[in-house]
């Protein structure tokens, strides 16, 4: 009996493998993509971040030199951080408030709700595109639509909002806020989840609209606010296209629209400092990870989960 067992077990293992082969077959496109397009480049960029690599010669090991330079002697890194944090800290809350406000309006059972929803969502579909960034440049230019409207309404001759270093970042923040559609859709779904009888109980308790909003809607919406805030923050840190198109890839005027990713791009593809750019990329990963971790840690103090 024992002698027979060995071939039997081998046959069993073969059948087992054949059964799973189809599964691995279906999984292979994703596996290939993950290893070749995600994990591979990530690992190689981690290695390159510890080297001096200029594309024309082989990477030279420099240890933590790139990270040291970023931390101690890179004024443009600080400028990029300044611009990016301004962008994140202003655009994310503004977008959240705007998306929530529109979602609340749409949740009041308007006629033609689906049309409004589609129209408000449209900027999110096309907002990240180069064409819209080009359009944005036209709107906020010295002779752009905004200034024409200001002139017609208030006889005010506005500056070139894009060419002015003190206002250019705000045009990009406005572009980000304009793309509130996907957050709005998620808020709308969240609002629909709040049981109507909760509001009825509150109205019997004497709570008016504003008290209902601050004591019922907002707390019950915190899981959705949290989700939206985390996603928007990560997206804002990674924002690239608008700054690239509006500043013609320079991050100007005077680095006032130098998004972190734009600086990273310049270091890699203009200055051909791939090692340094890789280090910048890993610093950004660390910043996003830290922000996300902080958000999750803070969640237990302000996010209310039903169960």
């Amino acid at each position: 009996m024992l002698v027979d067992d060995v071939p039997h077990r081998r046959v069993h293992r073969w059948t087992h493998l054949r059964q799973h082969l189809a599964g691995y077959g279906f999984l292979s496109p994703w596996l290939l993509g993950f290893f070749v397009l995600t994990l591979g480049p990530a690992a190689s960029s981690l290695y390159l971040s510890l080297t001096d690599y200029g594309l024309m010669s082989a990477p030279r090991w420099v240890g933590a030199d790139n990270y040291m330079q970023i931390a101690t002697s890179d004024p443009r890194f600080r400028a990029a951080m300044n611009v990016t944090f301004t962008y994140v800290l202003l655009s994310v809350p503004l977008k959240l408030v705007f998306a929530l406000a529109v979602a609340i309006l749409l949740n009041r059972g308007l006629r033609g709700l689906n049309w409004f929803r589609a129209i408000f969502y449209l900027p999110s579909l096309i907002g990240g595109s180069v064409a819209i960034a080009v359009l944005w440049r036209q709107v906020f230019a010295g002779d752009g639509i905004l200034n024409q409207v200001l002139m017609a309404l208030f006889s005010y001759e506005g500056p070139s909002w894009i060419a002015n270093p003190s206002t250019s970042i705000y045009t990009l923040i406005a572009l980000a806020v304009w793309q509130f559609g996907s957050s709005m859709i998620i808020f709308l779904a969240g609002l629909r989840q709040i049981p109507q009888d909760m509001y009825e109980a509150a109205s019997i308790d004497g709570a008016g609209r504003s008290r209902q909003f601050f004591k019922i809607t907002l707390p019950l919406l915190t899981p959705v606010i949290f989700f939206n805030a985390v996603i928007l923050t990560i997206d804002a840190f990674k924002a690239f296209t608008p700054a690239f198109v509006i500043s013609d890839g320079t991050g100007g005027p005077i680095d006032s629209t130098l998004f972190y990713t734009l600086y990273l791009y310049q270091e890699a593809f203009t200055n051909f400092r791939f090692g340094y750019a890789s280090a910048l990329a890993w610093v950004l990963v660390a910043i996003i990870a830290a922000f996300t971790a902080l958000s999750f840690l803070s969640a237990k103090y302000w996010v209310h989960y039903d169960d």
């Binding site: 049981p195 009888d197 909760m198 009825e200 109980a201 509150a202 019997i204 004591k215 019922i216 707390p219 019950l220 915190t222 209310h304 039903d306």
Partner: peptide
């Protein structure tokens, strides 16, 4: 001057 008890209880979960 009324108070109501709902089928779903309608307690504020937070």
């Amino acid at each position: 001057g009324i108070a109501m008890v709902f089928q779903s209880y309608a307690l504020y979960p937070h």
